[in-house]
Simulated assay, not measured.
Amino acid sequence: MTKSLPNVRGTVTRNKDLGGLTWLRVGGPADVLFQPADVEDLAAFLSGLPTEVPVFPMGVGSNLIVRDGGVRGVVIRLGRGFNGIDIDSDRVTAGAAALDAHVARKAAEAGLDLTFLRTIPGSIGGAVRMNAGCYGSYTGDVFESAEVVLRDGTRATLSASDLNFAYRSTTLPEGAVMVSATFKAPNGDPEELTARMEAQLAKRDETQPTKDRTAGSTFRNPAGFSSTGREDDTHDLKAWKVIDNAGMRGATRGGAVMNTMHSNFLTNAGGATAADLEDLGEEVRKAVYAQSGITLQWEIMRVGERDAPKAAKKQ
């Protein structure tokens, strides 16, 4: 890792532990954590950062396993200055660090329907990158554009066609940091939208382990779509169903467990390492494939190295 970094107005922290910044509370340190003051600060930093230094944009850590060896290069985490929400007619522009739930509530107050975001953990940057969705609605359905800072420090506006939205994926350029996104939202009655979100929250709390240490859904649904929330929604190709069929609900490894309330929630039940969690996930994938021939795809992002870098040998 380079010893010389660009001058910034934000905060640079070397050898920063990332475990405390993730919902699963596991993982090693980043060589460097950079928290920019604003977009200009971010652009200047990336422009001055040597091109060989890898960059990883990190949200609030709600859908992330940082491996025990930590992350080489620079981790960029947006905070204040990147969480504003602006509403103009039927368009909602939110900073990448704005929480999904907050955006949904502010939009509802203005009579705009982004209610599907209310129960999705994390921030807008992650929601766009992963095309987050539930109840039959996806971020890509309402997405209009995103403002990003590319790896070389230049700023760009990306459209939906640039991102190629698909189930739980987009093609955001490597090393690009999203700073805001604009959505075109359907109109709705504020009271009805609020009531719908309250009902969705109640249903989530009844069916998901919201009080446990998880990172949301572990694997993508083999069906290729999220829950619709409809009465006729089928479950045969839902991740939790194929995990159950393989007998892996409640499976454990170290401090990791496949949650007994919802088997597609990988959980740190206490003292788990990142390796415990990832290895249990791989055990589940093998068991599901052996039982059904289905290869589960990770929905949780996993980054970093399993082992800490070896100390340089003395000359």
Rank of each mutant, 00 (worst) to 15 (best):
K203F: 09
R105G: 07
T22V: 13
A110C: 10
E299S: 05
R25W: 11
T234W: 01
D212R: 12
V288A: 05
D31E: 15
T210G: 06
F165P: 14
P209M: 05
T252V: 15
P222W: 03
F143L: 12
G84D: 13
A30K: 00
Q315R: 13
L237R: 15
A251E: 13
T2K: 13
M261I: 13
E231Y: 06
L117N: 00
A43F: 00
E52D: 15
V75Y: 04
R91F: 12
S180G: 06
T260D: 14
A256G: 12
N187F: 07
P309D: 03
I294D: 07
G254H: 09
G229C: 09
D100M: 06
L193S: 07
E109Y: 05
G84L: 08
T214W: 09
A98Q: 03
A104I: 02
L24N: 02
D90T: 11
T214D: 11
G84V: 05
M301D: 04
R105K: 14
G270C: 08
D100L: 06
D244S: 12
R253F: 09
R91H: 14
T115P: 04
Q297P: 00
E305Y: 01
A127Y: 04
Y138Q: 15
N268K: 09
D205R: 15
K3A: 14
K184H: 13
P173S: 08
V66Q: 10
D244T: 12
G247Q: 03
V92D: 02
L112I: 06
A251Q: 10
V26R: 04
G293A: 05
A110K: 12
N15I: 01
G188I: 10
A107W: 02
Q200D: 11
W23F: 14
A202Q: 12
F45A: 04
L33H: 02
V66D: 10
I76K: 04
V128L: 08
A202H: 12
A311G: 07
H235C: 01
